[in-house]
Every structure is written in structure tokens, then in C-alpha cells.
Nucleic acid binder design. Structure first.
Lengths: 150, 150
DNA sequence: TTATTTGCAAATCTTTTGCATGAGG
DNA sequence: CCTCATGCAAAAGATTTGCAAATAA
């Protein structure tokens, strides 16, 4: 229940009405460890017997993103919109350009860099996302194998 | 002409035929300072009287991305696929969460961090992208003004 | 009560696909 | 030649929108 009331507060603070659908969507996002598509949220809600319309989900997600309660990103491989709670936290990951696998990393070499940007450009930093593109160990091995069969 | 022959080489090296359409698309991407959507490429080609079909553009872009000659990303605001030449260069930018403006920055605090990742995880790094989310100076000013009118 | 939100159905927009034709090596 | 690439039209899939009914404040 505590998270429900915190959503109520967050919605109120953004001037949005506290509806069953918005709370349900925020709860799904809160439980998820990764960004979700509108459809994944839809399926999750249907599974837990929460009746909702897909277009409502899209509308809610866009509204929440406008208010910065959630963050909209985009999956490169299949080009769908992804949504996650705005934790204002750092996100770092490695993206394999071959298999598209995403590997999370947790170290952050940034605190100082961010401070400098803030001072220099007057840009208030809420968080950052770092994607490192390359080839993972698995794909390197597969590439080696394929050299022989091709 | 030098860039045309370099595209020829690049295509050959990837086992792809050197077609008029592929060269035209690579040329457009080469001239652009920013990632383009399939449709933007289409318009650019039509403008320079290069006849091409939109579905050909999609097919070429996907093929080139598979071969890592270009990089596919995704625009957050309107969820379209974006393509740019794979420069294997660093890309850093600030994204304002309010007006969605993108501000390029060029400093990079990363060389060491990347080396460490490579050694630790066997991940071969081709490039990286850093997005810093926050609020730009303009939006901060507008927010201040709106406090009075709301 | 009244503005906001939702459901539903239809529309829109981006991207993909099947198939016949055309072009590159 | 023979395979691969392209054009065209149609399909598929994600997201948006108009409107009437429902709901929060």
C-alpha cells in the first residue's frame, strides 16, 4: 500500500488525477527491473486481472513521461518505445552490436565530469545513460567458428 | 569521388554488391552531421533526383547495419529508427527532458574506463554513447516564468 | 457538477514482406 | 548466367485520435 500512496502523491504533485489505471501502470513499472513496452505492461495487467485498454496505456505512459514521472526510451533492435520509472539514477550498459545483448555494468567514472558540465553550461543533471557499443565474448567466439564454415 | 570508391571497398569487404542505391544512401549519410530516418534519406535522395523506393531504403539500411557499416539508433521522442555512418567514434550529448533539445558535448572522460572494461569483461569496444538527462538553461527560465502564470 | 480520463473503433504512420523484374560479378 | 538486389503493392505492427461514456475531485 505504501507504493500506492506514493503514486497518489506523485500524481497529485504533477496535477494528474489519481486513477486506477495510472496506479496500476506505475505499480507494474515499479515492480519491473527493466524498461517495458506498452504491450508488455498490457499483458502484465491482463495477467493480474486488471482490465485496461491498450490505448489507455499509451495515453497514460505519454502523460507520465511528459511529467517526468517515467522515462521514455526506445529499443534499438525492434524500435518500440520503452518506459521505466524515473529513478534519476545512473544507467550504464554494454550493447553488443552483433547479438544486441545488453550487459549491465555498475561502475561510474562520472561524478566529476557531471559537475563540470553543470558549472560550464548551466545544465541541471538528473541522470545519465551510457551505452558502450562493441562485440561481446560470445559473438567473438561465434565469429571465429563461422570463419571456418563460411 | 574518393568517398564513392571507399564505399565500394566497404561494400565489397562486407560481401555486398556495389549498387547505385547503396552508394547513394551511404553518400547521404556521409554528408549528414546527424543520424537520419529512412524517410529523411528518402526525401534527400528524391531532392537530388535519385530515384529509389522507400522499401529499398529500409532494406539497405538494415543490411548495412547488420554488417556494422552504419549504426542504427532510435529517436526517443517520435520512436523512429535513426541511421548514421559507423564512425566508431564517441558520441556524447545532453538531452533536456523538458524540451527534448539535444546539446552536443565533446569532452570524453572515458579512455581509461573503456580499457578497464575490455580487460575485465573481454568486451571489444567499438564506440560509446553518453546521454546526460537534465534540464537546460532555457527550460529552467521558462519554468520560472510559468510559476507566476499558473 | 465539471473537467479529466477512459474505452472502443478506426485511422495513421513506420517498417516489413512476397513476388516479379532487373542488375552486378 | 545465376544469384542477389530492387520496385511495387500489400500486409503487419505500433501508436494515435475522435467521440461518447465513465469517473475523480
Amino acid at each position: 500500500m505504501s507504493e500506492i500512496s506514493s503514486h497518489k502523491e506523485a500524481l497529485k504533485h504533477s496535477g494528474l488525477k489519481n486513477t486506477k489505471q495510472r496506479n496500476a501502470i506505475l505499480n507494474i513499472l515499479e515492480k519491473s527491473t527493466q524498461p517495458l513496452t506498452a504491450d508488455q505492461i498490457y499483458v502484465a495487467l491482463i495477467n493480474e486481472k486488471t482490465a485496461i485498454n491498450l490505448s489507455t496505456i499509451y495515453r497514460v505512459l505519454n502523460t507520465l513521461a511528459e511529467k517526468n514521472l517515467i522515462v521514455k526510451t526506445s529499443s534499438v533492435s525492434d524500435n518500440k518505445a520503452l518506459f521505466e520509472l524515473n529513478s534519476f539514477e545512473h544507467k550504464h550498459h554494454l550493447v553488443c552490436v552483433e547479438c544486441k545483448k545488453i550487459i549491465m555494468v555498475d561502475e561510474c567514472p562520472f561524478e566529476e565530469y557531471e559537475k563540470k558540465l553543470k558549472e560550464k553550461m548551466g545544465f541541471t543533471i538528473l541522470g545519465h545513460k551510457l551505452e558502450i557499443y562493441g562485440i561481446c565474448n560470445n559473438c567473438k567466439k561465434k565469429d571465429e567458428e563461422n570463419k571456418h564454415t563460411q
